[in-house]
Design a protein around this nucleic acid. Structure first.
Ligand SMILES: [Mn+2]
Ligand SMILES: [Mn+2]
Ligand SMILES: [Mn+2]
Ligand SMILES: [Mn+2]
Lengths: 217, 217
DNA sequence: ATATAAATTTAGATTTGTCTAAAATTAATA
DNA sequence: TATTAATTTTAGACAAATCTAAATTTATAT
């Protein structure tokens, strides 16, 4: 139905939309897609012709309902594939994104629904991001970032805000993985760094910078 | 590394090669790929420049070792994905090919090897075709077509020669599925049609045309 | 051996997606 | 407000893959 490139543009524009009604700028899309502004202008003209977004010269773009639908379905496919790669094929959570970038463009609704069933209808991907349903509905995840959690409360590591490979590798290195049970046992007032208890056993220290980027429930 | 189109051309040429040293003709490639001869000429020039095949004007093409390697790895990916779709996602054997045509182009050696491991290193795809190993080695399957099997010998349905969707749907309709235990209990001399016993229970009749296209072991 | 037919290649165009450099518009600043 | 700066769009080109129509080469038939 839609090309790889079209799906990637729609996904990028969707992620850059703040729902403030303000159009997404050409430059921000170009930066996000690692391409040039001129290429973006060319492409948004095509997407506009196909009624996937509304485009006003020099004013940026806004996705139409149709455009949002395609973007959300692409995100759904991406995140379901990430779950498969992590849960079934045992890829690290820092490895799944790149491969899912390819798999998200496979065209078969039946495939993604059967895969969803095979995985037991997961609600979140390995980074803690919610997986939209078949009809595009998002259920809000009530995750909070670890730096806001009070001391001596048991929580479960459920996601990350920073998705970068270096950050994910760092978490892996200090044994902070998805599903990990943990408790804040000390909060240093000075720099808001934390002492954590993992699985009721090991104690580790993390900086506030790291804590801000960890989601727990 | 190589584009979808390049992989598809190499796969088609590989399948059309008879190993007689005789070049694969432009027209046969065009027919196989559902494209025009002129497009084939354009593409084989590019593949020749990349040393993936040897091309002599008006004389057809022969894959180089490099070209064969790419073709075989693409076939490997295709067949492993078919096993996944059939075994894990419960797609019918008439449905897997089309989706595998897309999945075979996903680029990640690690992915296909982890998938291979996840599936328990399958040796054959859902149509009974052998899956080449990581280094391209084919192990010969010793399957025989059902019309050559003598009466009262127990065999297992292990593959098909005709891969067409209508043929596979017909087999499904008459309960002939992969792994089915069966025995020839009567061979009609007149038209070489067969009476079969399925799972030691049900008796069915099949024509010689059907029997010729079924592989058993 | 010539003529006709079939297969193959070339010439020239098209579509998709990209780019650089230049022009036009909008935003920022003095 | 006038000038400069930043953003965005256009113009023109390019690579990949495809096509149609015409030219060329090879095969077949008289
Ligand atoms: Mn991702
Ligand atoms: Mn993710
Ligand atoms: Mn197949
Ligand atoms: Mn197959």
């Amino acid at each position: 139905m839609y090309s790889f490139t079209e799906e990637n543009y729609l996904k990028a524009i969707y992620k850059l939309s703040d729902n403030n009604g303000s159009g997404v700028s050409t430059n921000s899309i170009a930066e996000n897609m690692q391409t040039k502004a001129a290429s973006v202008t060319d492409m948004i003209k095509k997407l506009s012709d196909k009624k996937l977004l509304k485009y006003e010269k020099y004013k940026g773009v806004n996705l139409s309902q149709k455009g949002k639908d395609v973007a959300i379905q692409t995100i759904r496919k991406h995140r379901i594939w990430e779950v498969f790669l992590h849960e079934k094929l045992k890829f690290g959570w820092e490895e799944v994104h790149e491969i899912a970038e390819q798999l998200e463009h496979i065209q078969s609704e039946l495939l993604i629904n059967k895969l969803d069933e095979f995985l037991g209808y997961p609600t979140h991907d390995p980074h803690g991001d919610p997986i939209p349903g078949e009809n595009g509905e998002f259920h809000n995840n009530a995750f909070v970032s670890l730096d806001t959690v009070e001391a001596n409360k048991k929580v479960i590591l459920s996601g990350v805000i920073n998705h970068s490979v270096p950050f994910l590798q760092h978490l892996k290195k200090i044994d902070l993985t998805l599903g990990q049970k943990l408790m804040v046992i000390e909060i240093n007032e000075y720099d808001r760094s934390l002492k954590l208890l993992l699985n009721g056993k090991i104690e580790i220290f993390i900086s506030n910078e790291v804590a801000k980027n960890i989601l727990v429930k």
